[in-house]
Write a protein that binds this DNA or RNA. Structure first.
Lengths: 195, 195
DNA sequence: TAAAATATAGACCGATCGTTCTATCTAGTC
DNA sequence: GACTAGATAGAACGATCGGTCTATATTTTA
């Protein structure tokens, strides 16, 4: 049996970390909100850092699942899905509980690259990038990795501008730009085939 | 006379905040590294938050000055300068003391948008964007605001990918992408003039 | 129903947090 | 040389931090 207390603890911590940050969220607040005894936390996790890691891993799983499912529900073609990414992005950003990207935030608070917390954040970004690469490859462009890297820059940039500078149009602008870049990649692709 | 103690305090705090983050940097560490008495800090600043604000304001001033000076030294034409932005970006990212963008990091730790600290971060991003808009306008494209917004996304995305995911090529990729977008904007511009 | 595992409340730990106070000392001004 | 403003070291404040311990209660499993 997988402990429901443990799950609930991770979910609660996730919410608080997302809202207020990692250092700013004390253990006391977490156990109080979770309605759980202090020792229950420490029986499931060696330390607060371990709880942070567990929360980030859950976040990674939930977010990527939601992202991919949303993208793939909105469109059936690879090209369409590349564009749908930015609709999902916009939906996320417009949500009430949007507090930026938890992994960017985690990296900000745990700057040392050797820190496992930073490593999990790094891994998350790489997994997102890999997913985009799958889509660009399926779209049949000749430079799938290049295009994926470009779209990744747009996504991360939009997250930052939406969160830090409260730019309401960040996702829309990113999408428009992505359309231009996709079109360029397809033109190159067509040219190559025509040779 | 402007207090040198105060200046030194701000510089020291700036360095520590950049390295280790805001919550993780205690007042004790700051005064110890600055070689200054505790009350000297509290005579110049009402609170740690005020010191954080002062540090961020100095960072904004120093960074923007360095950025604009570097860009304008490297090229004389508006178009060249738009591209030079990404060389400066790459130089910054490759530096030993690169710990991501302090303003993104500050936003991560002080998530509430009403917080003056978050507000300063927001202002910084807007000022950078305005500078890019000046360059795109001078470059004579028909969509200067649009292009500036696009380039801003690329810059912020590159910062994030370089810091979170340790992407060594983020600035280079951003530059290549920027070249494509600039070319598109110039083509549109030429087309418009030709009508 | 007995045994084993898990959760509970709450006291307690030492460390650190940001902040204040005091009393002494140093530097610059008249 | 007297006065003033600023800086000093260091004790002390209450609050909170992450983490441990214990003794009791609840649940799960056999």
């Amino acid at each position: 049996m997988v402990s429901r207390k443990r799950d609930h603890l991770v979910d609660t911590a996730l919410e608080l970390f997302n809202q207020d940050g990692f250092h700013a969220t004390g253990v006391d607040k977490i156990i109080e909100k979770a309605g759980v005894a202090r020792m229950t936390l420490y029986n499931h996790f060696k330390s607060k850092d371990e709880l942070i890691l567990a929360a980030l891993r859950r976040r990674d799983e939930k977010f990527r699942n939601w992202f991919m499912r949303t993208v793939e529900r909105q469109s059936n073609t690879p090209q369409g899905r590349l564009m749908s990414m930015f609709d999902a992005l916009g939906e996320w950003i417009a949500g009430d509980d949007f507090s930026g990207c938890m992994f960017i935030n985690a990296s900000a608070e745990f700057s040392c690259h050797d820190n496992p917390i930073h490593a999990v954040a790094c891994e998350h970004k790489i997994l997102i990038l890999k997913y985009i690469q799958e889509l660009t490859t399926a779209a049949g462009v000749t430079n799938p990795e290049e295009l994926a890297g470009e779209l990744m820059l747009l996504i991360e940039g939009a997250i930052v501008m939406a969160y830090v500078a409260r730019d309401q149009n960040a996702a829309t602008r990113a999408k428009k730009t992505a359309e231009k870049l996709l079109r360029l990649s397809l033109e190159v692709s067509r040219t190559d085939n025509g040779n």
